[in-house]
Design a protein around this nucleic acid. Structure first.
Length: 283
DNA sequence: CTTATTTGACCGCA
DNA sequence: TGCGGTCAAATAAG
């Protein structure tokens, strides 16, 4: 509720800040790479905000429907329902990427066909389940409606000190994300050949805080960006993604957002005119 | 070797 | 009894 609105506002504020920095970047420095990064970040942020708002409507409808059902039930059979003690507080966030990596280290322990939906659901638990008694689990299922969306449900919170997958890694770590095979990489799946645009995540509040942190603190190096074209996606090799992912989801998001540098570059050339204008508007 | 994934069996609940 | 969640043996990967 109010929480979600705050999240949207927060996203938009981040976008605004980035836009400001981008303006001064374009004006004072010649760091094209960092400007590109900022642009892609801004795009991602606005995508997030839009998705948050649009799915909020869905949530309202779902709520309404479940309330109607509840009413009906209480009329027919007055059975007391214990709808309480849900294990986790859940909140939806939307990440503009095909990455389902969240910085934690997961181990897959099952997969099930779910009645009524075409895609199976994967079951994951924290790798440190036994070593650190970390109770965190998540379920991942590709959306029926939009196959480019993963619905991720987090159950329980991490109690482990999560340091197994460090975000600074080699390029291989994000080979499983991003978009794909337009560079002619052979993909054995007939399934998906389009860049993954969005991801839906149902995420616990704590996880959300964590996510925000890595968003803020992650820094990018140029060679990572240069690799964009070469990243391939094997996320769809099976019905579900690999269980354990490493590296930061952030990087792959950028890969998706900046998928066409040619276009971005052309924007740059015509951008100079509006920089001054923007400076006035935003600062 | 160790560690992760796959996948059918199993089990509890509605 | 069927569905969804978990277990665990077999298998793959490193």
């Amino acid at each position: 509720m109010a929480m979600e609105e705050k999240l949207v506002i927060n996203e938009l504020e981040q976008g605004r800040e980035l836009a400001k920095r981008l303006i001064s970047n374009l004006k004072h420095t010649s760091s094209v790479e960092s400007s590109k990064i900022m642009i892609s970040e801004i795009l991602r942020i606005y995508q997030n905000a839009i998705l948050m708002l649009s799915f909020k409507e869905d949530d309202k409808n779902i709520l309404k429907r479940s309330r109607e059902i509840e009413e009906k039930d209480s009329k027919t059979l007055s059975k007391k329902r214990k709808l309480s003690d849900k294990k986790t507080e859940e909140v939806r966030v939307f990440v503009g990427t095909g990455s389902i990596d969240d910085g934690y280290c997961w181990r897959k322990y099952g997969q099930k066909e779910i009645h009524g939906s075409s895609n199976p659901r994967g079951y994951f638990r924290c790798t440190h389940r036994f070593t650190q008694k970390c109770p965190a689990q998540k379920q991942v299922q590709r959306s029926d409606k939009d196959p480019s969306i993963f619905e991720v449900k987090y159950v329980g919170n991490h109690t482990c000190n999560n340091n197994s997958t460090s975000p600074k890694t080699t390029g291989t770590s994000f080979s499983m994300f991003g978009e794909g095979n337009r560079v002619g990489l052979t993909e054995q799946t007939e399934d998906i050949n389009k860049p993954t645009k969005t991801e839906e995540v149902v995420i616990s509040l704590e996880d959300l805080e964590y996510k925000k942190d890595i968003f803020k603190t992650y820094s990018f190096s140029n060679d990572e960006i240069e690799n964009v074209g070469g990243w391939k996606s094997n996320i769809f090799q099976e019905n579900l993604s690999p269980a354990t992912t490493s590296g930061s989801g952030m990087t792959s998001e950028i890969a998706t957002a900046v998928e066409d540098w040619g276009t971005v570059d052309s924007y740059f050339s015509s951008l100079d005119n509006i920089i001054d204008l923007g400076q006035d508007l935003w600062s």
